[in-house]
Computed example of a mutant assay.
Amino acid sequence: MSPRAADRATYLVALLIAALFLVPLSWLLSLSVRTPQEVYLGAARYLPEDPTLENFRLVLTDRSFGLHLWNSLKICALGGAGAVAAAIPAAYAFSRFSFRGRTGLMVAVLLVQMVSPLVVLIPLYRYMDALGMLDTHLGVIGVYVALGVPLSVWVLKSSFDRVPRSLEEAAEIDGCGRAETLVRITLPLAGPGVAAAFILNTMMGWSQFLVPFILLTDTGKVPISVAIFNFAGSTSASTTQLLAAACLVAILPALALFVAVQRLIVRAVSGGAVRG
């Protein structure tokens, strides 16, 4: 196969993958701008004849929706930040220290990441009940931190590996201790990796459903994913357009956060390169 044909095949596969994700989103957008009457048409009409933004107005002016959105932002951001903070010492140790069984421990950390929360859901519920942390945001954040640490360790370890050890050695000669060197030298240079770990953990928490669904029972404390599920369970065809609008609005904060931090990563990589 010629290079040009290979490029065309690659673009074709990329377009097919993009269509796999964009077609459902476009259909959701179509439902979100319909009137209640046009919802009953279903798949018979893809483009509504009389599109309206009234559904988005109703969703955005609903005080309970804003509360659930804030719950998601708080839980996911704190969970992501906690996972990164907890993973930094372990990732730094894996990157800078040589000890017996280091490779095996790294593999073990990765294997923990592969364990689904569904497997430990019952003991997790009983554990949180014993600690008195059921129906609290702190309990959910703690679980998000535990779920995000393995991935964060791998991402941060790779970032620390790219920081030259000579800079840390120079800082130690100037009198900096190990912890001060980590905070003042290594972490700033590994900023893109720290940001990437935070993004991944926040996105993982944003898409999490089982943990908050099981641990939170107060409707005023649940995140947007659980709130939309509860609304979907009680909805009818006349409110499908509201559900579609709510789903789209719920996606926007995650996309905005990803785009904002992605720009930070690009600036850090291009402007913070280490020059020999």
Rank of each mutant, 00 (worst) to 15 (best):
R4K: 11
A6L: 07
Y11D: 10
A14R: 14
A19R: 07
L25E: 06
W27S: 01
L28S: 04
S32H: 12
S32K: 11
Y40D: 07
Y40P: 07
Y46W: 15
E49T: 09
P51W: 15
E54T: 08
N55E: 04
F56S: 10
R57C: 01
L58Q: 13
V59L: 12
T61M: 09
T61C: 08
H68T: 00
L78E: 01
G79E: 03
G79H: 04
G79V: 00
G80A: 01
G80I: 02
A81V: 06
G82H: 00
A83P: 04
V84P: 02
A86G: 09
A91M: 06
S95A: 11
F97C: 02
F99D: 03
T103W: 13
T103C: 07
T103P: 08
G104I: 11
G104R: 03
M106K: 09
L110Y: 13
L111K: 05
V112W: 08
V112M: 10
M114T: 01
V115A: 11
L118E: 07
V119G: 04
L134I: 05
L138S: 15
I141E: 06
I141G: 08
V143H: 04
V145H: 10
G148K: 02
V149C: 08
V149G: 00
V149S: 05
W154P: 01
K157Q: 13
S159T: 06
F160N: 04
D161T: 00
V163E: 08
P164C: 07
E169Y: 10
E172T: 07
G175P: 08
C176R: 13
C176L: 15
R178Q: 12
R178C: 05
E180Q: 05
L189D: 06
L189G: 00
G193A: 14
A195Y: 12
I199F: 15
M204Y: 15
S207A: 12
F209P: 06
P212N: 03
T217S: 12
D218G: 04
D218F: 15
K221S: 04
I224N: 01
S225M: 12
V226K: 03
I228D: 06
I228N: 02
F231R: 00
A237Y: 14
L242D: 06
A244Y: 14
L248Y: 14
A250Q: 04
I251A: 13
L252S: 10
P253C: 02
Q262E: 15
R267M: 09
V269D: 01
S270N: 05
G271H: 15
